[in-house]
Amino acid sequence: MPPVAVLIVDDDDAMANALAAAMMAYGCRARVAAGGRAAFAIPESWVPHVVILDIEMPEWDGFSVAKSMRGSIRFARVPILAHTSLAEAEIMERGIEAEIDAYYRKGEPLHGLFRMIEYLAPVRYL
């Protein structure tokens, strides 16, 4: 089975790159997009198994990015995980409306995030 491909969408470069390094150390393939527009600029030949999406971004917030992803052919069925410092209750209603599949709070131990990604990632064969 190929490694899980993860797209990290976060405007905080240090946070995104640290998370990508952790994902790669865990055995995933990871790419970083510095915001929602950058996520759509990644070559279309690369489709992630899971998107880890920051919610609080200045130019285009995570809810808007998720809605746009759901409206695209490329990302329509890719699980989206909100990765944010906001409390789950704060994003629950808007997250459901934006079709976000899961929530993980920034700052929590990464082993929980890895387990969540394993659960969300569909099995894909090359």
Rank of each mutant, 00 (worst) to 15 (best):
Ala76Leu: 02
Glu97Val: 14
Trp46Asn: 08
Glu59Gly: 11
Lys67Gln: 14
Leu53Tyr: 10
Ser72Thr: 12
Leu81Gly: 04
Leu86Lys: 15
Asp61Asn: 15
Val78Leu: 09
Lys67Ile: 04
Ile100Pro: 05
Val50Cys: 07
Phe63Gly: 07
Gly62Thr: 06
Pro43Tyr: 00
Met57Leu: 14
Ala87Trp: 01
Ile100Gln: 07
Asp61Gly: 01
Val47Trp: 03
Pro58Met: 05
Val78Lys: 01
Val32Lys: 12
Ala33Trp: 02
Gly71Cys: 05
Ile80Val: 15
Arg74Glu: 06
Ala76Met: 12
Trp46Pro: 07
Ile100Ser: 01
Arg94Ile: 01
Arg29Gln: 15
Ala98Pro: 00
Thr84Ala: 09
Val50Thr: 05
Val78Pro: 01
Asp101Lys: 04
Ile52Trp: 01
Ser68Trp: 00
His83Val: 06
Thr84Pro: 05
Val51Trp: 10
Gly35Val: 09
Ile73Glu: 13
Ser45Val: 13
Gly35Asn: 06
Ser45His: 13
Leu53Val: 11
Glu99Arg: 15
Phe40Val: 04
Ile42His: 06
Glu88Lys: 04
Ala30Cys: 05
Val32Thr: 13
Ile96Lys: 15
Glu44Lys: 13
Ser64Pro: 00
Thr84Ile: 08
His83Thr: 04
Phe63Asn: 09
Met92Val: 05
Ile55Phe: 00
Ile55Asp: 00
Gly36Leu: 07
Asp61Ile: 01
Gly95Tyr: 03
Ser45Phe: 11
Arg29Phe: 07
Leu53Ala: 10
Leu86Asn: 03
Ala39Phe: 06
Val51His: 05
Asp101Gln: 06
Pro58Cys: 10
Gly71Pro: 06
Val32Ala: 12
Val51Asn: 05
Arg37Phe: 10
Arg31Asn: 13
His83Phe: 14
Arg70His: 12
Phe63Ala: 02
Asp61His: 02
Phe75Glu: 13
Trp46Cys: 09
Ala34Glu: 03
Arg94His: 10
Pro48Gly: 12
Ala66Lys: 00
Asp61Pro: 02
Phe40Asp: 09
Phe40Gln: 04
Arg77Gln: 15
Ala98Leu: 09
Ile42Met: 10
Glu88Tyr: 01
Ile42Val: 15
Glu93Asn: 05
Ala33Lys: 01
Glu90Lys: 14
Gly95Leu: 07
Arg37Lys: 12
Glu90Leu: 11
Arg77Met: 12
Val65Leu: 07
His83Asn: 13
Leu53Ser: 12
Met57Ala: 08
Gly35Cys: 09
Gly62Ile: 05
Ala98His: 03
Val47Gly: 04
Glu56Trp: 03
Leu86Ala: 10
Pro58Trp: 11
Gly71Ile: 05
Val78Met: 08
Arg77Ile: 06
